[in-house]
Write a protein that binds this DNA or RNA. Structure first.
Length: 295
DNA sequence: CTGCATGATTGTAG
DNA sequence: CTACAATCATGCAG
């Protein structure tokens, strides 16, 4: 097995060091066994020669003895080889399994991913291009983005209540951005900083009331997404989220009950319910709010 | 040390 | 192949 690895990363060199250590142990053990085999053979030969003085011993018998000894030792060597192979396999799986060197993403990457997830909550399936862009922004690979969304979807669905705080936070933040963008238009200078997490109350109530109607109609299935672009759809998502919180504020339990379905139970799940009329919009729709906060 | 959060892998179904 | 579900193995706060 002459694997020609010309990689010079630190982990790989460690791996190779351990591999050569195993190989060295194997060779020394093998040598030891061979030596022992020879010693034992000569010992037996001497014994037989001594016995040949008192009784006749045919050379065939000697040959057979030697063969038996060699067979025994060779089986021991096979065992050694097998256990060495096992050790190498364990080493390989230890080093090649990426789970063992898992590192959490940095905070900014998680923020970007969460932002996308919660602003596309009704259809959290980023396209290949969107994945690539997210990957670039977060300095991770596209596969990692896919993994992240896979994990996020399943874990969000499994326990929505646990993610509610986080969901509110991101939804409020994007909602504030959206309203700022749509209400003020080109006036992109607002003194209020939208970075405080739990301050969903700073959201303008008159706007909420206005938008609550559209959200109601959206929940009531009379809404047709055919005419809205994907960007509007995402804004509606976040706004619906915030509004469900503010609207259900009258009693404590209503909030979680109101928010929890989100089309998952009602519509039967993300996969089937979404894509109103397949508005994938590779080209930007009219008046797209391109709030690109590149770092 | 223990329990939970989290990224990655494995197995299964469409 | 992708999405999902279960599971593994690690990171980290308590």
């Amino acid at each position: 097995m002459g694997g020609a690895g010309s990689d010079s990363s630190a982990e790989h060199s460690d791996y190779r060091a351990k591999l050569s250590q195993i190989r060295q142990i194997y060779h020394t053990e093998l040598e030891k066994y061979e030596q022992a085999c020879n010693e034992f053979t000569t010992h037996v030969m001497n014994l037989l020669r001594e016995q040949s003085r008192t009784r006749p011993i045919s050379p065939k018998e000697i040959e057979r003895m030697v063969a038996i000894i060699h067979r025994k030792f060779s089986s021991i060597q096979m065992q050694l080889k097998q256990s060495t192979c096992e050790a190498v396999m364990i080493l390989r799986s230890r080093f090649l399994d990426a789970r063992r060197k898992r590192r959490n993403f940095n905070k900014q990457a998680t923020e970007i991913l969460n932002e996308y997830f919660y602003s596309h909550l009704s259809n959290p399936y980023p396209s290949e291009e969107a994945k690539e862009e997210l990957a670039k922004k977060c300095s991770i690979t596209v596969s990692q983005v896919s993994n992240w969304f896979g994990n996020k979807r399943i874990r969000y669905k499994k326990n929505i209540g646990k993610f509610q705080e986080e969901a509110n936070m991101y939804a409020a933040r994007t909602a504030v951005n959206a309203t700022n963008a749509s209400a003020q238009g080109s006036q992109a200078n607002s003194p209020s900083t939208p970075n405080s997490a739990g301050s969903a109350g700073s959201f303008n109530m008159s706007n909420s009331g206005d938008l609550f109607m559209s959200v109601q109609s959206l929940n009531g299935d009379s809404y047709q997404g055919a005419q809205v672009g994907a960007n509007v759809q995402s804004q509606v998502d976040t706004l619906r989220h915030v509004i469900s919180q503010t609207g259900g504020y009258s009693d404590g339990l209503a909030a979680s009950q109101m928010y929890s379905p989100q089309g998952i139970n009602a519509n039967g799940g993300w996969q089937d319910a979404a894509t109103p009329s397949s508005v994938t919009s590779p080209t930007e729709g009219p008046g797209s709010v391109h709030s690109d906060t590149s770092n």
